[in-house]
């Protein structure tokens, strides 16, 4: 495996906020939220090209997202997926007995997956509960 352990955080972004209000099934939401923001050094090390897909795997699940270098930079070893459907495929539900899941600061393995397809929000969520009727 060509993956690397990184520390994942998932937080808000204004693009995500706008897209969410347009609608979670919209193209805008799809574009805003299925990306992982990484440090360039990590991408180089992993052989990930900008704007190509990667697989992110955590203790509780995995998701395909598109890797980008963001304006709001992260240091090497840290990565970020905007809050929402894609992030929550990998966010661990453990709460340290507070009620709040581990949305930030959980280990993930990131590996290149240039040939994997991104799934839509509906595909992911309906798929998880056996309601997805599409392909």
């Amino acid at each position: 495996m060509t993956g690397k352990k990184l520390n994942m955080i998932t937080q808000r972004a204004v693009e995500e906020g706008i897209a969410m209000e347009i609608g979670k099934t919209s193209r805008e939401y799809f574009d805003a939220c299925n990306i992982i923001e990484m440090n360039e050094l990590d991408m180089k090390e992993l052989g990930i090209m900008k704007n190509t897909n990667v697989r992110v795997t955590s203790e509780s699940g995995q998701v395909i997202v598109k890797a980008v270098v963001a304006r709001q930079t992260v240091y090497p070893g840290l990565c970020h997926i905007r809050q929402g459907v894609w992030a929550n495929q990998v966010v661990p539900p453990r709460t340290q007995s507070t009620g709040a899941p581990q949305y930030s600061g959980f280990p993930v393995t990131v590996e290149p997956a240039p040939n994997e397809k991104l799934k839509t929000a509906l595909q992911l969520v309906q798929g998880a509960v056996g309601l997805w009727k599409g392909e």
Binding site: K24, S60, G61, Q83, G84, V85, N88, Q89, V91, P92, P93, P101, A121, L124, V125, A128, V129
Partner: peptide, 16 residues
């Protein structure tokens, strides 16, 4: 709200 999008997916599966 939208628990479907904002809860970790294992929690969504349980509630469903």
């Amino acid at each position: 709200t939208d628990a479907g999008a904002h809860f970790p997916i294992p929690a969504v599966k349980q509630l469903k």
